[in-house]
């Protein structure tokens, strides 16, 4: 078990480092000139003072070779310093830290809503014997995956804010302002959860051990509770890390639609102003969120599926390994 945890931890650290490297490669080494982009933004299109170019090149390390520059940036990032924003001059780490709590609330609520809806749809569809209800329920996820998130947000805004005046249209004030953005964000996620879970449950219902359980005299409810639910949810659990990462990506659109402050809005601003240090910081933080979620999922996984731990090592181990 300890070896398993250590292996996962090392893997997580490696992915984080690699995510930093990839974002560096994209943002600093693609054939565009970062300094030119920065100055375009900073100077608002005026003619650029060569002295300022030189100063910027030095500040961001472009006077060094790419390897040297990469190592400098990496070293700084390891100490928690993500650099400074070009457009505002504020430290990137501070910007992200300020924006994060609002987004965490939004994403957290969305995750809960998505899980409740997704699990509800999948379980009911797998349980019901009424064909029409199952077909209806199973037609919802493809619909949820197909509708653009920004469009859902606008439709909800139109209905609940401008027609019925139930929820505020914009802002970060209070729980009421959280509802519509969270629902918007949850729609796509719930659809994916429902799809993966109902697929998993469908396959589990067909497994031979289900027949064994029925042959013992178990009821449908018991077979679902004792065998199908657990086996059928394994695929969903494994994709949870990716889903939470996508949730973070989704906040870019949702926070823009609802004019909320937060992580997504920060991304949108940084990309619009091509504020490279901020974008890189955000990418690394998003990867970190993914890595941490995946790590938690990986650590919880053996509790659900004992086969993960023994990874092919036969039946020598035995006994109390699983706990």
């Amino acid at each position: 078990m300890l070896a398993y945890v250590l292996r996962r931890l090392a893997g997580a650290a490696a992915v984080l480092w690699a995510a930093f490297t990839v974002s560096y490669l994209i943002l600093y080494l693609l054939p565009s000139d970062p300094v030119a982009i920065m100055l375009d933004q900073g100077a608002g299109g005026e003619r650029v003072d060569p002295a300022r170019v030189a100063e910027l090149r030095e500040r961001y390390g472009f006077d060094q070779g790419p390897v040297q520059q990469y190592l400098t940036l990496l070293g700084r990032t390891l100490t928690g310093d993500l650099g400074t924003s070009i457009s505002s001059g504020a430290p990137v780490a501070g910007l992200i830290a300020d924006a994060f709590p609002e987004t965490a609330k939004l994403a957290g609520l969305a995750l809960v809503l998505a899980l409740v809806a997704g699990v509800g749809i999948a379980t009911l569809a797998s349980w019901t014997r009424a064909a029409w209800l199952r077909d209806l329920l199973l037609s919802l996820p493809p619909l949820g995956v197909a509708v653009p998130g920004f469009w859902v947000g606008l439709v909800l805004l139109h209905l609940f804010s401008f027609t019925w005046f139930v929820f505020p249209a914009v802002g970060n004030e209070g729980f009421a302002s959280l509802v519509l953005p969270a629902v918007t964000l949850a729609v796509g996620l719930a659809a994916v959860v429902a799809q993966v879970l109902s697929q998993g449950l469908r396959e589990a219902w067909r497994a031979p051990y289900v027949e064994t359980a029925f042959a013992k005299g178990s009821s449908r409810a018991r077979v679902l509770g004792a065998h199908v639910a657990r086996n059928g949810s394994l695929p969903t659990v494994t994709v949870l890390g990716v889903l939470v990462g996508n949730l973070l990506g989704g906040t870019v659109v949702v926070e823009t639609v609802f004019s909320r402050q937060g992580f997504g809005r920060l991304v949108e601003n940084a990309v619009t102003t091509q504020d490279i240090p901020v974008v890189q910081g955000l990418v690394v933080v998003a990867a970190a969120v993914f890595v941490v979620t995946s790590l938690l999922v990986d650590l919880a996984h053996p509790l659900l599926d004992p086969r993960v731990l023994s990874g092919g090592r036969g039946r020598a181990g035995s006994g109390g390994g699983a706990r």
């Binding site: 690699a18 974002s23 994209i26 870019v252 990309v271 091509q274």
Partner: peptide, 13 residues
């Protein structure tokens, strides 16, 4: 590991 939309946005940047 990088959310798809963020990866796209980094490339757009």
């Amino acid at each position: 590991a990088i959310p798809g939309l963020l990866l796209s946005l980094a490339v757009v940047t």
